[in-house]
Design a protein around this nucleic acid. Structure first.
Lengths: 330, 330
DNA sequence: TTGAAAGCGTTACCAG
DNA sequence: CTGGTAACGCTTTCAA
């Protein structure tokens, strides 16, 4: 029970022309007389012709599709970025598909599909990515060793520097960090690293009790870690939250301790997403705005695709501080 | 500067055989001597060969790819389902790609890719879907009018019935519902509808003050709505939470009111996801377990693809009650 | 057990 | 302007 669909040959037969003429007519080529063109198009419509994309792709080598590899969709933080990237891509002649598998499996699949370009959300540095042929750019942390594709880096180290600087300018000297220290996610590692580096840079002491490992990125992880921090006899005057969800949890436990934000305790969060505004306490945050990120990623991707000259480079983005009402002068 | 990828001809050249032999070897045909087969496969691996889907499709009419349409990835609840479905599909000869666009745009894209089948997460009933040729099944609510493809229905109405029944058996008579009433999402509407229907069925009064519209599906929506409910002079003895995040927010505000779960107030949540266990208070919940859902969806999809005989039907799934410690006898 | 060749539905080139 | 024909990368006969 195979249903054969209409091909250009069928149309050619009906129209009484060669199938190459049909092809040209359907592609609106100027090499076909206008009257025959119209006639052929009319016939094609009447026969409900639909081009076979497999065949088209086979010869034209272009799919106008960009593949995005997103190994763990559970990381909610990124879904907002994915949505933005998709929007941007749709403003171009390209469109996007997603693969939620392991990096290598996704890479293989996209290669078979012959997508025109690949965007990779890199969530671990363990695996060496062997990409050939297809233009690939990665969103993540630059690693200085073997780097054979361009990287868009949200520059969390710089963000942490700015956060610490901002708090110091407000008069804070005791600044805590609550975030995920787990070594597997390079983005999280960089935040923690950046915090410590900034503190040292400004000559502030690194108090072990003021560095809390959430061991996860969920709301509740932030909440628990916050409780641990507030048990200290010597409280910090400001807290840096490692991510949106973590900060949300921290807010909660601060309020439970009957402390006021920002009068008793200032808090600033990593990641610059609009949702920060809608939290229980609207949060000052530091990070590259999602749409800057999406813009840069899509722009680079398409440039890379269209003139394959883009050489492996690291584009470090510029974090922006979005002030709300969660930090006060000390 | 076009970089061609490896084809069977390249492999043939290296292996010193004809390319038709390579094709057979790679498809594990019995028409090739085992030793040459192994040799060819080894070479193919070394050369990082990946078959070209377009070419395969052109001749064999199959891509072994299933497309999943997921219009709004922000709905976190579903990401867990997507992950499960992906896992299941990977246990078959098929694999999965995702499109996060509007239904129609996604449909077009998948058609272009000639995927073998399409799974649709339907999040609104406004648009009429015109699908042709490609097998399509939908996850969502059955609508009785024009239905031209199979639907997997999580049966929230039944779930609500079971929830109410369960609470009544524990001795509750004053049961509140906190959920999203917004008419745009059919899944949410069904929950609310099912609650009301069940209450009436068991002859329980429907108190307007015990039906709170969260106007959203986020944690904070649940939190606010919970506060509104607890302002009542006449408190319910049990609450049904409309979704995972909503229930999480409700828990929070119950605790802030210094009420104990389940001694002072019982709570049960819609949606049966493993994460319920890890909440501040592990939650009893009612719903079709995620992996039942994933199993059914993938099974039906593949059956549909392989013998196109599956007629438009609605498969209503069976909700399961997962008991934890959030409901007590009254 | 292997190879040659036809064909899948297009596009693109070159003659006419 | 139009038609013929060679690709594209693969599977599948049919011969050898």
């Amino acid at each position: 029970m195979k249903i054969m669909s209409v091909t250009i040959k069928d149309i050619a037969r009906v129209a009484g022309v060669s199938y190459s003429t049909v092809s040209k007519a359907l592609n609106n080529s100027s090499l076909v007389k206008d009257t025959t063109k119209q006639r052929i198009i009319a016939i094609a419509n009447k026969m409900h012709y639909e081009p076979n994309y497999a065949a088209q792709k086979l010869v034209s080598k272009q799919t106008k599709i960009i593949g995005l590899i997103w190994p763990t969709i559970d990381r909610v933080v990124l879904s907002s970025l994915v949505t933005q990237i998709n929007k941007k891509i749709n403003q171009t002649p390209y469109s996007m598909i997603l693969s939620v598998d392991s990096v290598q499996a996704s890479l293989d699949r996209f290669k078979r599909f012959q997508v025109d370009g690949i965007i990779l959300f890199e969530e671990s540095t363990d695996t060496t990515i062997k990409h050939d042929t297809i233009p690939l750019i990665s969103y993540g942390v630059s690693r200085d060793n073997q780097m054979n594709y361009p990287i868009i880096d949200p520059n969390h180290e710089k963000a942490m520097y700015e956060a610490v600087k901002y708090l110091i300018e407000l008069g804070h000297h005791s600044i805590a960090y609550i975030g995920d220290f787990s070594a597997s996610d390079p983005l999280q590692v960089t935040k923690y690293h950046g915090y410590k580096k900034a503190m040292q840079h400004f000559g502030l002491p690194l108090d072990k009790n003021h560095q809390i490992d959430t061991k996860g990125l969920d709301w509740y992880n932030g909440y628990s870690a916050g409780n641990k921090l507030l048990k200290n006899t010597n409280l910090p005057t400001a807290i840096i939250g490692g991510s949106y969800d973590i900060s949300a949890g921290v807010i909660r436990c601060i309020k439970e301790e009957k402390l006021n934000i920002p009068q008793d305790l200032s808090i600033i969060s990593c990641d610059n997403v609009p949702e920060m505004e809608k939290l229980e306490v609207p949060l000052t945050c530091i990070g590259v705005p999602i749409d800057h990120l999406a813009n840069e990623i899509v722009k680079s991707m398409i440039m890379y695709i269209e003139n394959k000259e883009l050489e492996p480079c690291v584009k470090k983005m510029t974090p922006v501080l979005s002030e709300r009402n969660s930090c006060a002068k000390k």
